[in-house]
Design a protein around this nucleic acid. Structure first.
Length: 274
DNA sequence: AGTATAACCTGTCTGC
DNA sequence: TGCAGACAGGTTATAC
């Protein structure tokens, strides 16, 4: 469920609740949540440590603890990180529960697709091959141009975390609508002006969504249980058969790479093929 | 290098 | 009411 704006929001809201807190106890209702470590070892390494830093990398949430280990959490479709009082009952799908000094941090995940890695190097494992960060210093026009030298369709490329990180299905659709680009256009066929539009639209859409605290369609909520607000601002995503906000023609949904692409066939024109 | 498909999971909604 | 099928903010392995 979460793309960059949701993960960014989660990290920001999480910080004040868990930073500097000691991990008192760890319970693991779903062992399959741990991807590279046995449950017992996981507990031994973490219990007694203190949470130092919480940050985002791509769609991962990285929690650094006091013994130089890093927890890398990916929420995939339905994962949540919730902060509750010790006396509160657990949410319906708890996978890992961290009891802290004054509260508890719960990794809850209905579809159980989320992952949790314990790493000694924050650039290793699933974090090793991540692409360009849209809000980093490396995000420049020339770097984007370089990434676009590919025969991949532009929508697929935007979803490819090895190329550029943080963009998922909602924001890919919204970015392409804003830039009036056809999702099926080959990346290498984008013109100079189109690349410039894309270069601006990617951080523009993402930061707009961060300001709105993300998009809640179904399950996404902040660690405090609050919904986002960007769903009220969506132009094309989830709006099949509704009028295009720009030209009033009908918004379509077509499968692309096994996923739904929402677009306006009338104003996202630039050639579909070639 | 690309694409396509299935797989990992559980829930919800639609249509017959 | 029941039941099958489609679909869901994601990624990855495997096969052309």
């Amino acid at each position: 469920m979460p793309e960059l704006p949701e993960v960014e929001t989660i990290v920001n809201r999480l910080k004040p609740h868990i930073q500097s807190q000691k991990i008192i106890e760890v319970s693991i209702p779903d062992k399959k949540a741990l991807k590279n470590i046995a449950p017992q070892t996981f507990k031994e390494r973490l219990v007694g440590t203190t949470i130092k830093k919480v940050r985002r990398k791509g769609k991962f949430i990285i929690i650094a603890v006091s013994n130089d280990l890093f927890l890398a959490i990916h929420l995939r479709m339905t994962g949540k990180l919730l902060v509750l009082s010790p006396e509160d009952s657990n949410p319906p799908y708890p996978r890992v529960v961290f009891r802290l000094k004054t509260n508890k941090l719960i990794f809850d995940d209905m579809r159980r697709l989320g992952t949790l890695h314990l790493l000694s190097d924050p650039n290793s494992g699933p974090l090793a091959k991540l692409g360009l960060e849209p809000f980093s210093e490396e995000y420049t026009l020339s770097r984007l141009k370089q990434i676009l030298q590919s025969t991949q369709e532009i929508k697929r490329l935007l979803l490819d975390q090895k190329k550029i990180v943080g963009i998922g299905n909602i924001y890919a659709c919204e970015i392409l609508f804003k830039t009036k680009l056809n999702p099926w256009k080959k990346a290498s066929n984008l013109g100079e002006e189109e690349i410039k539009r894309l270069y601006k639209a990617i951080p523009a859409i993402l930061s707009q969504a961060i300001k709105a605290q993300g998009t809640t369609i179904d399950t996404y909520e902040t660690p405090e249980g609050k919904s986002g607000n960007f769903q009220f601002t969506l132009q094309v995503y989830g709006r099949e058969d509704k009028p295009c906000p720009r030209c009033k023609s009908v918004i379509k949904r077509d499968a692309q790479g096994g996923r739904s692409t929402y677009y306006c066939p009338s104003c996202q024109t630039s050639n579909r093929k070639e």
